[in-house]
């Protein structure tokens, strides 16, 4: 299979990439790891007239903790997250579950985030942890809350000419923990069900913040807001987690397909939410 013809610009700076995007108009696309885009070109699901390769931009692969955030640059690979000690919680938990080792060597976190595939894992992690997407365009840089960034099925809220340059995941100052639970048929398959969980504890041991978001069980990565609301301000415990798991399952909208029935997937959401909360709590309590 061959991609349709396109022009390729290899950008050496973010400014060059943004200029090239602006010149290319609405048919221009950023090429980062290419692990979703190149297959989509080959399948003719996408036919951009111009690709702007950002892999040669120096420093764009940054991965660092600064000012209470984990900063993940546009060309940081999934494998970089796996190999680094910097990420914690749901981010560290999710990274080894992204596709397979070879795809992780090439694919990028920011690319996956921008792709907005509801079967992609990262946007659930970002929704659960309250992350921010940094976009750069002709008008400069702006920060977009992940909840506003993920608009719909394969649709983000980038304006024409904008590219994702970083993702910022908050690193809480107090006790916190998180997990990503993923059921997959085999290595490299999309999630049958994925659940990201994130908990922060106050000084008295009650839950001060909670995040739950789900993969592959709705037309978009979906935040289980009702389940989160049940948890905040409460003392963690089995009954509370069971109630939150029930609320997350109710917020899911799985469809029956080759990976299983809707009813079964909803039950997996329930079980994985509970297990994820337990893992997040254990991590938070261990400090």
């Amino acid at each position: 299979m061959y991609p349709p013809s396109f022009d390729l610009t290899v950008a050496r700076s973010v400014a060059e990439a943004v200029d090239a995007l602006a010149e290319g108009g609405e048919d221009a696309r950023i090429l980062a790891g290419g692990q979703s885009l190149i297959p989509m070109l080959k399948l003719r699901f996408a036919a951009p007239s111009l690709l702007v390769d950002i892999n040669e931009i120096a420093g764009l692969d940054l991965l660092e903790r600064t000012n209470g955030h984990l900063r993940i640059g546009a060309t940081a690979r999934h494998a970089d997250i796996v190999a680094s000690d910097l990420p914690g919680g749901a981010v560290a938990s999710a990274a080894p579950w992204i596709s397979d080792p070879l795809v992780r060597n090439r694919g990028t976190v920011c690319g996956s985030v921008a792709h907005c595939d509801p079967e992609g894992d990262w946007n659930s992690v970002l929704l659960a942890t309250g992350a921010t997407v940094v976009a750069t365009g002709p008008g400069g840089e702006r920060s977009i809350d992940i909840g506003d960034f993920v608009v719909d099925f394969f649709t983000n809220s980038l304006a024409p000419g904008e590219m994702v340059t970083e993702v910022h995941v908050p690193v809480p100052a107090g006790a916190s923990g998180g997990a990503y639970m993923k059921l997959e048929r085999k290595v490299g398959d999309y999630a049958t069900v994925g659940v990201a969980t994130h908990l922060e504890l106050g000084g008295d041991g009650t839950i001060s913040a909670a995040g739950i978001a789900m993969t592959s069980v709705a037309p978009v990565n979906r935040k289980a807001s009702d389940a989160e609301a049940l948890l905040v301000g409460e003392a963690p415990g089995d009954e509370l987690f069971a109630a939150a798991a029930e609320a997350a399952a109710a917020a899911s909208e799985p469809r029956s397909d080759v990976r299983g029935s809707a009813e079964w997937k909803r039950n997996v959401v329930r079980v994985y939410t509970r297990r994820g909360l337990e893992a997040a709590l254990a991590q938070a309590q261990a400090g």
Partner: peptide, 17 residues
């Protein structure tokens, strides 16, 4: 690619430049 295993069906030749 620079010592790192990748799937060459999902990388452009131009990206190896």
């Amino acid at each position: 690619l620079d010592g790192v295993p990748v799937k060459a069906c999902t990388v452009l030749a131009a990206q190896a430049d």
